[in-house]
Computed example of a mutant assay.
Amino acid sequence: MLKTCASVLLCPRALTCTRCFSFRTATGGDSVRPLEGVRVLDLTRVLAGPFATMILGDLGAEVIKVERPGAGDDTRSWGPPFVGTESAYFLSVNRNKKSIAVDLKHPKGVRIITELAAVSDVLVENYLPGKLEQMGLGFTQLSAVNPALIYCSISACLTHIAANYLNAGKEARRWGTAHQSIVPYQGFKTRDGYIVVAAGNDKQFVKVCQVVGLGELAHDPEYTTNQLRVQHRTQLIDTLSTRFLEENTSDWLRRFEGSGVPVGPINSIQDVFSDTQVKHNGLIQEMTHPTAGPISVPGPAVRYSSFQPGGPTPPPLIGQHTTQVLRHTLSYTADVIRELLACGAVAQSGEI
């Protein structure tokens, strides 16, 4: 949920803000990352939020991740596997960020976040609805100190499932790899693995029948439209499943090549990272973490033709940048920072 009229990827003060980014083409000088100069205040935890803010960091934004003193993001303890003392889960979605440890239950901690919001362009959060408002950090409170702030709240959204219920009273159920409203559109076991076949229209269904050598299915009156195939899902899927078991995945992929039907193997993780396309596109990033040492994570999900992502900074330690942000972003004096550390409103890790 985006609570502003401004674009989420464009600083609303772009015409007046001296630290905002500028675009350059690949031939127009040094490469500048698209979000260079944009400051993002990151109040997210776990997966969806941190992944979203990591993408903004990949694109050049300054991302200030706010964590609880002591425990930090919940995913720091989600393991094994761990790399040193860091969970692989946390390492996977938190590169290119600064970490500050702030106690949001402490009045001085709330004041720090309010002051950071005043000098930020974007705030992203995934708290329970209403929780930040109770702390004095909701959209209404923070927009009062920074009317141009883009305030983004992340929550789960399953639009087509919601629409099915709201318009047809149809309760959701588990479908595995299958699609509730399209048949066949799912994974099938082959002789040596799995393949996904997605016949999104009647023409593609006819082609599936031809490729698998079951052309008579295309003319069966129970399967001539998608609506009929959904109604007779069980018997159709049973027939197709039996056929797919008769050959290897690679054989099926060759048969479907050029057919116009979306198909693909279900790869193991080892298969994914052994794929020549993954290697060619440089989708694995390597970096050195201050305590975990050398680590590898999947690279940026968004690519631009006009710039290449630079060397990433590793996921931060809890509160690794607390003092730095207070000093350089909010201009706090050394005495004030010492007082905040002493009263527990903030915390600083040993690595700076």
Rank of each mutant, 00 (worst) to 15 (best):
T85L: 05
L228G: 08
A172L: 02
A178Y: 01
M54A: 07
I64W: 02
A6K: 09
E36I: 04
D251V: 15
I64V: 14
P50L: 05
G293I: 05
A61T: 00
R243L: 07
A292K: 11
K97D: 08
A218V: 09
E115P: 03
S268F: 06
V272I: 13
H289W: 09
G37D: 03
V197H: 02
F205N: 01
S274E: 11
A6F: 15
L317F: 06
F90N: 03
L137K: 02
C152W: 06
G138D: 07
K98W: 05
S259H: 06
N226R: 04
A71G: 08
E86S: 01
L91T: 02
Q210M: 11
E246F: 10
L116C: 03
M135Y: 12
L142H: 00
C209S: 09
S22W: 05
P81L: 07
A162C: 12
Q210R: 11
G49Y: 10
S296V: 05
K279N: 11
H232A: 10
Y89E: 03
P300G: 07
A163Y: 09
L91H: 02
R229V: 07
Q285L: 12
A163Q: 10
V336K: 14
E115G: 00
N96R: 08
S120E: 04
T239A: 14
A52R: 01
N201A: 08
R76P: 07
T225N: 02
E62R: 10
K203S: 14
L240E: 07
G57Y: 00
M54H: 03
H232M: 08
V124C: 11
L142F: 01
T249R: 05
D220R: 03
T329H: 09
A347V: 03
I154T: 05
E222V: 07
P107F: 10
V212D: 01
P50M: 06
V183D: 03
T16E: 14
T242G: 11
A199V: 00
H232Y: 13
M287H: 02
R76Y: 03
T177V: 07
P262H: 11
P294M: 02
R76T: 00
R303C: 12
